[in-house]
């Protein structure tokens, strides 16, 4: 009798766990046993000419760049054929819904956005900093999140910002300095953004089969399948053709 009830209890427990598991299939935690997916993004062809930026209307910023003229950043290619500012993320196959708690910072420095493209999870907090001696207004123009427009005079404290919904990508601009533009890529799960050499790292990707998407502001998106095995870091590479 006692044994029977124990069995019954175990069965109920099992059913509960299974039901729980089923209910959680949408949002289980990404396991800590994730591995990193690294890779490079290349540009096939000669990078298009990037227009120079005349900052003479903002002397405090022009002074910062007096030795090295700045250009637009629609396509930023490194010397080794790498393509920078490409966001790589999991567009299909992700079962987790973990929000990164990693610090994310978006700086306004020398009347430029640093980084030019910031990737972030929905709900992840980011800091918007003004390091300049001039006022900026931060004016993101999302379509799937709420648009706002805030002034940040020099010396004012950083803004703490989070985005509710996935969106690739939210353009952000400063109306006072019309050359300033950047992006917030709001993506679920692990993400990486390529550096000047085109290298990126997506940390903590749990084992599984995924569709990876690489997004570049001028060239759009590319996708690729990847299977990540437990304990084995994976590598992926993307190539964008100059249009």
């Amino acid at each position: 009798m006692k044994k029977q009830s124990k069995q019954k209890f175990a069965a109920v427990l099992l059913a509960l766990v299974m039901a729980g598991g089923a209910a959680l299939t949408y949002s289980p935690k990404v396991s800590a046993a994730g591995v990193s997916v690294t890779g490079t993004v290349k540009l096939d062809g000669t990078a298009p000419h990037q227009k120079g930026i005349d900052m003479s209307k903002e002397p405090s910023c022009a002074a910062i760049h007096k030795d090295k003229p700045v250009t637009m950043e629609n396509v930023v290619a490194g010397s080794s054929g790498g393509l920078a500012n490409v966001v790589v993320y999991i567009s299909q196959g992700l079962s987790g819904n973990e929000v990164s708690s990693a610090p994310a910072e978006f700086d306004q420095k020398g009347c430029q956005y640093i980084p030019h493209v910031l990737a972030i999870n929905p709900g992840q907090h980011m800091k918007i900093v003004n390091s300049d001696q001039t006022s900026h207004n931060i004016h993101p123009q999302p379509t799937k999140n709420n648009e706002w427009n805030k002034s940040q005079p020099p010396g004012s404290p950083p803004f703490d910002v989070a985005w509710a919904n996935e969106e690739i990508a939210i353009p952000v601009k400063c109306n006072i300095h019309p050359w300033m533009h950047g992006y917030f890529a709001v993506v679920k799960g692990p993400y990486g953004v390529s550096d000047d050499n085109g290298s990126f790292t997506m940390p903590n990707v749990p084992p599984g089969s995924y569709t990876l998407t690489a997004w570049q502001e001028t060239y759009g998106t590319q996708t690729q399948q990847v299977t990540v095995a437990a304990g084995k870091p994976a590598t992926v590479s993307f190539t964008f053709k100059v249009k």
Binding site: N137, I138, H139, S156, F159, N175
Partner: peptide, 9 residues
């Protein structure tokens, strides 16, 4: 419009 909010500062 380009007119931002100043309430934070």
């Amino acid at each position: 419009t380009p007119m931002p909010s100043y309430i934070d500062n």
